[in-house]
Design a protein around this nucleic acid. Structure first.
Lengths: 288, 288
DNA sequence: GTTCCGCATGAATCGATAG
DNA sequence: ACTATCGATTCATGCGGAA
């Protein structure tokens, strides 16, 4: 017979992922967000001297000064265990790579940010073209910043299948493995073997191989779904809060919503803002 | 009837590639070289806080001050149309990526160098390991510096045959790539393939996919032959002069010699210096 | 000659332990 | 407290020997 042990206790409040879209300038709109309230920031701000016709084009010598007040707000709203992923790449100015990204990293460190890692996004199908003294630019930076050395990271969620060699390797553990493990206690060795036997996946590296999005979303920046998806898996769990202060066509917030994360998006251009709003209305209509 | 137009003129001097190996500190040995005499510098200096047992290990806060006098000499000896390729990567210090490479780039620009490009060397077989807040580091920087905007570049020499490239590329697609490619990415890839069919050769991008050399050369740095080979093809012709101020196990000078380029190598460690000397003696014995 | 398979090892990084 | 050394973790690659 079933016994109700706590008949009058209220139901456990099930956290419901929310979506919050803010129209306006990032620097100002961020003021509406509470301190230490965001688990992950993933964004691709307008690059210097690019997308002039849509964003007004911040020149590369003003870029750092323009970005620092925003990154200061981002620092405030991010949880201590949170992560900030910044997708950026400097363009060529008078035959040289511009140095504003490096200057930005150095300046953000003075703000208190830790520059934890630099992931490389290898764009497998980069835009074709030919120049007399330059090849196609096939990569972008994905800068990881944190507030402290210990931050939330769920590595298992982005593991990938191992190579074929694993099967052969697992058949009979080589002497090398045994030798390398011999300093360990016996129990440790046994544990290690069991790890190997159940393992068919390997941890990825800090180089991501993704194609750029081909379908045009009426937004000039090509940002594949896989990019935010990967970082969302890696740095958040369900119901965590994800922020994109430069929402654009909404890739990050849409992916976050689909993955059961709460999403906050800020966008200054009304066209893009409404575009994303409509996207959410469409999915809401489908759900109800 | 054949008319000798200049019967007494001396025979046109056939330039003969030379090899010059200098034992000692780079900063001092470089003084022996003439101004504007080198076509290409390809080098991989000891990274900060690394290779302590062999090179003494320059700490990351002293690194820029240590390197600048050398890069000043390199600037002097490089031809105006020459190129300087610097292979380097910062390591993690107290949970953060060290910033000394960025500071070096900024300082070298003040010396007069143009920071033309940053190639990415994707190390397919990067060092394994697992850490609570970090994945394996699978890439290094290949910084391109020049003295002027117009420099010698032979793009055609590094073009890859289409079929071959596609074949190799497809063969090399790891499980990781396959899994991370969703349908969209595949369609993009396929679209590109159809484009390739109309052409014979393709220009590469600024991302290089190479494995580190595993065979032991009694030198701690893993530097595959393909790396200097690629840059030698791209930035030099036969009989041009190639310099490596941190010769190490001699990969760059040996490749340069095999490719019919003149090679100058500087190395401070007598063991490595003799190792390279012996390599050249061996190949000389084989030739004569 | 090929292909297959065993094997060592690499610019790594973190945390614990020792001086 | 601060630095130096050591052990544990882990995967793609090329070589050499074997089939």
């Amino acid at each position: 017979m079933f016994v109700e042990t706590a008949p009058f206790s209220p139901p456990i409040p099930k956290p419901e992922p929310f979506v919050q879209l803010l129209l306006g300038d990032s620097k100002e709109q961020l003021l509406a967000l509470a301190d230490n309230s965001v688990d992950l920031i993933v964004t691709s701000p307008p690059y210097a001297d690019q997308r002039k016709n849509t964003y007004g084009g911040i020149s590369h010598d003003e870029y750092v000064d323009w970005f620092l007040p925003i990154s200061e707000q981002l620092y405030r709203v991010l949880k201590p265990t949170g992560t900030f992923i910044l997708n950026i790449k400097e363009k060529v100015v008078e035959g040289e790579r511009s140095t504003y990204v490096m200057e930005l990293i150095l300046a953000m460190r003075k703000q208190g940010w830790l520059w934890t890692e630099e992931f490389i996004w290898h764009k497998k199908n980069s835009y074709p073209g030919k120049w007399p003294n330059r090849f196609r630019d096939a990569w972008e930076r994905l800068l990881q910043f944190n507030k402290q050395r210990k931050f939330a990271m769920y590595q298992e969620s982005v593991m990938v299948p191992m190579g074929d060699w694993a099967e052969k390797r697992l058949k009979n553990l080589s002497e090398t493995d045994k030798v390398r493990d011999n300093s360990k206690a016996k129990s440790g060795f046994g544990k290690n073997v069991s790890n190997w036997l159940t393992r068919d996946k390997a941890y990825p590296t800090n180089v991501l191989h993704l194609a750029t999005e081909c379908n045009n979303k009426n937004h000039s920046a090509a940002f594949p779904n896989e990019l935010p998806e990967w970082f969302l898996k890696l740095f958040t769990q369900e119901n965590d809060v994800v922020l994109d202060p430069f929402m654009g066509s909404g890739t990050t917030v849409l992916v976050a919503n689909q993955m059961g994360r709460s999403a906050i998006g800020i966008e200054i251009m009304p066209e893009y803002f409404e575009l994303v709003q409509n996207q959410f209305r469409i999915s809401a209509d489908r759900l109800f």
